[in-house]
Amino acid sequence: MIRTTSLRFTYQNTKTNTFYFPDIDLSFEQNALILGPSGVGKTTLLHLMAGLLIPKKGNVFIGNTCVHQLTRNQLNNFRGKHIGIIFQRTYFIKSLTLLENLRIREKLSKKTTDPNRRRQLLEQLELTEVRNKKVHELSEGQRQRLSIALGVIHKPKVILADEPTSNLDDKNCEKVISLLKKEAQICKSNLVIITHDQRVKLHFNKHIIL
């Protein structure tokens, strides 16, 4: 469950106006798309929900937790445990292998690690074969899938995806969306995707337009 209340945000040192975000209220296992043209603050909203940015006003509730009332360290902990983020660009620890990247994600979430979960996830994302490769040796598609794995390995309450399909062709776009939906279902979490990709629209009922 994720809920936002009258979120407002202003970037410092810029002349852009304050962003006013519509309230979002997703019930258990409900997914949503956040749509809108560039520059309207889609990524900003996502980062506010992830606790990476602090709102000028308003708040974000995940489960029973009021995200922006947590202390800095509590927020770090909470984010590690309950939020999974899939970035538009794929970021990894370059010097580590695929598996090591996953393990460090698990370790930092401070949840008990489950080897079965890791194995199943790798299987579903077709990454088992390349799990011991360094990330720079992976193909673009494998990297995309790894970044999904990193977003969901720790069974977060909320999965936030930032333009996950923008660089993909139709076939891979379908694949990624269905994987995300499936993982959200397995993790019993809310999936929030921001996108301006028309292809994604058909897969979700709830659209939030900025």
């Binding site: 992830a50 990476l52 800095r72 360290n73 770090n76 902990n77 984010r79 590690g80 445990k81 939020i83 983020i85 970021y91 990894f92 620890i93 370059k94 460090i104 994600r105 930092l108 979430s109 401070k110």
Partner: peptide, 16 residues
Amino acid sequence: KHELALLRTYGATNFQ
């Protein structure tokens, strides 16, 4: 900075 920021989103504290 990308790797360090990524680790922060994973739940790593500044101290870590």
